[in-house]
């Protein structure tokens, strides 16, 4: 995972991001650059605003102040049509998977394709569904309902659903939370495989140090709503800062 990222352009640029919910100032001035094909993990305590951060990136939550540029477009300045168009280049993996539970796996995967790529024929859509499911090793679940799958399988299907529109960026919200270590390891491998095959950039929100160690090239620690520390896994693990040290070595 030693990609040369210096010469690549930024696909995500966050500047002085601020977001409050009432009196709760969750993000107080956060900055982040993510380069093309780079995987950046954002680490922080529960409730530190990590999920809020990526929801701001994709426009699900509107930031109070600051700018977010994704693929050169300022998210806060886009109208709904432009935002929807930008979102087709971004995959979002929800912590809860958010599979459509009244649809089969095939329908889950077809849902965005049928609406966003209306020029595609049925055969092309079938081929895309097959490819995405084979990438996550679950083609045999094609006609099952999400409720018939295990937690790990649902996570894989959720990844397949983000892949089907071939995004340039993937935002992972706690991809391994709630999974056993073996399944979590498989998801980590899958995330790396996806990045290699689809050449995606990604932001990974996680508490899982094993996940971050395997998947992220750079780690940014979010504490008290601002950038607290930044570095590679090894750099942060050997940090002399007591808080960082406690986080990495407890």
């Amino acid at each position: 995972m030693n990609y040369k990222t210096k010469e690549r352009e930024n696909v995500i640029e966050i500047r002085d991001l601020k977001k409050s919910f009432g009196d709760n100032h969750v993000i107080r001035g956060f900055d982040l650059n993510v380069k093309d094909r780079e995987s950046v993990a954002v680490l922080g305590q529960s409730g530190s605003g990590k999920s809020v951060l990526i929801k701001c990136v994709i426009g699900l939550i509107t930031a109070d102040e600051g700018t977010i540029k994704v693929l050169g477009k300022a998210v806060e300045q886009l109208n709904q049509v432009e935002l929807d168009e930008l979102r087709t280049d971004i995959g979002f993996l929800f912590q809860s998977n958010a599979l459509y539970d009244s649809m089969t796996i095939r329908e889950n995967l077809e849902f965005p394709l049928r609406r966003l790529r209306r020029d595609k024929s049925k055969a092309e859509i079938d081929a895309a569904v097959q490819e995405a499911l084979e990438d996550v090793g679950l083609f045999h679940t094609l006609n099952l309902m999400p409720s018939e799958l295990s937690g790990g399988m649902r996570k894989r299907i959720s990844i397949a659903r983000t892949l089907i529109v071939q995004p340039k960026i993937i935002l992972y919200d706690e991809p391994t939370t709630g999974l056993d270590p073996i399944t979590a390891g498989e998801i980590n491998q899958l995330m790396n495989k996806v990045q290699e095959k689809y050449k995606t950039a990604s932001i990974i929100i996680s508490h899982d140090l094993d996940c971050i160690k395997v998947t992220a090239q750079r780690i940014v620690i979010l504490k008290n709503g601002i950038n607290y520390k930044e570095g590679t896994f090894e750099e942060l693990k050997n940090s002399e800062d007591p808080w960082v040290s406690a986080f990495f070595n407890t």
Partner: peptide, 8 residues
């Protein structure tokens, strides 16, 4: 939200 972020 998942529908929304997929651009649909």
């Amino acid at each position: 939200d998942a529908m929304e972020v997929s651009g649909t």
